[in-house]
């Protein structure tokens, strides 16, 4: 490879520059969350951290709303992902059996929902009719299956050699125990990938709770954060000119908001590198057209 030439360097540099641009907003938020009002006033431009002040974090954890939201989010993410994986894995495995009578009808009905829906209002009334308002289940049941992930998983299961299942069948295992004891263990890459996708989706859920949960003690972190951001811009809009000029209230609120953003992003940051190596492989195998 003699062509490790100018074009290679240019490509690396261009992508490197883009990577810096992509990371900078996160970095800036992190810096802001550890900054004080004084830093901001004295520094002018806050690109490098001036101090390591944790008062914003102390503030949000002492104030019960964030701690409570965090707890709700963790509960919903854990329970929700378990429901997601159970329903999706079983459904995808059954749909991967082309010999099952009625399989095509079911699959078509699933695909159809990806392109056509009743819209917001009928959906809202349906969930209301099930009395799921102010119930944590509203963040778990209406999102039990994601058709996209279901298809990825189904396609992966289709690639498993039937010989594996048949040998277990001869030993007298039924299809359910074959799924649990043989199919799932040989499908770890796709299981890890889809678990990550679902967990992130549950963790990031804000729309359903915004519509159906008005009891503040049941609100997940995303919603607490959303309210904080909305309220902040409202206070910003309503503050008088002199206060804005002094920039006092503003900046402190900014570090609190940043601290909340960091708290909500850290769990994803922690899990992401471990699962990332799986998901490239998982998507590649799962996206084989089938």
């Amino acid at each position: 490879m003699k062509r490790i030439s100018i074009s290679n360097i240019v490509i690396s540099l261009v992508l490197g520059l883009l990577a810096v641009v992509a990371v900078f907003p996160f970095y800036q938020t992190l810096v802001l969350s550890f900054s004080t009002i004084l830093d901001k006033k004295s520094a002018g431009v806050l690109i490098f951290p001036k101090s390591f002040d944790i008062s914003a974090y102390r503030y949000i954890f002492l104030q019960g709303k964030v701690t409570n939201g965090l707890l709700i989010s963790i509960v919903v993410t854990v329970l929700g992902t378990m429901v997601n994986m159970a329903v999706t894995t079983a459904g995808a495995y059954a749909l991967s059996k082309k010999t099952m009578p009625g399989r095509n009808v079911i699959f078509t009905l699933v695909i159809f929902t990806m392109f056509f829906s009743g819209g917001l209002i009928p959906y809202y009334l349906t969930i209301q009719g099930l009395h799921l308002q102010n119930n944590l289940l509203v963040m778990i049941l209406p999102t039990a299956v994601n058709a996209f992930y279901l298809i990825l998983m189904k396609n992966f299961f289709s690639t498993i050699s039937p010989a594996l299942e048949e040998s277990a069948k001869i030993d007298g295992a039924n299809d359910l125990s074959i799924l649990v004891r043989i199919v799932v263990p040989v499908s770890l890459p796709i299981m890890a990938t889809i678990t990550l996708f679902y967990a992130v989706d549950r963790w990031n859920e804000w729309w359903l709770p915004m519509l159906f949960i008005n009891n503040t003690s049941l609100q997940p972190l995303q919603l607490v954060l959303r309210d904080a951001i909305t309220n902040l811009s409202q206070t910003m809009n309503s503050t008088t000119g002199s206060q804005l000029a002094a920039g006092v209230q503003n900046v402190y609120a900014d570090s609190v908001k940043s601290a909340m953003i960091v708290v909500s992003a850290v769990p994803i940051l922690l899990v992401y590198p471990f699962v990332q190596k799986y998901f490239n492989a998982g998507i590649m195998i799962g996206s084989v057209k089938g």
Partner: peptide
């Protein structure tokens, strides 16, 4: 395929309740 129907049942119920019931709701 009886076990496979058992496996697919929760998913089918999910789609009926959260996708097809609201689809009927478009009569509104």
């Amino acid at each position: 395929h009886k076990y496979f129907y058992l496996m697919v049942l929760p998913m089918v119920l999910f789609y009926l309740i959260f996708a097809y019931v609201p689809m009927y709701g478009v009569v509104l």
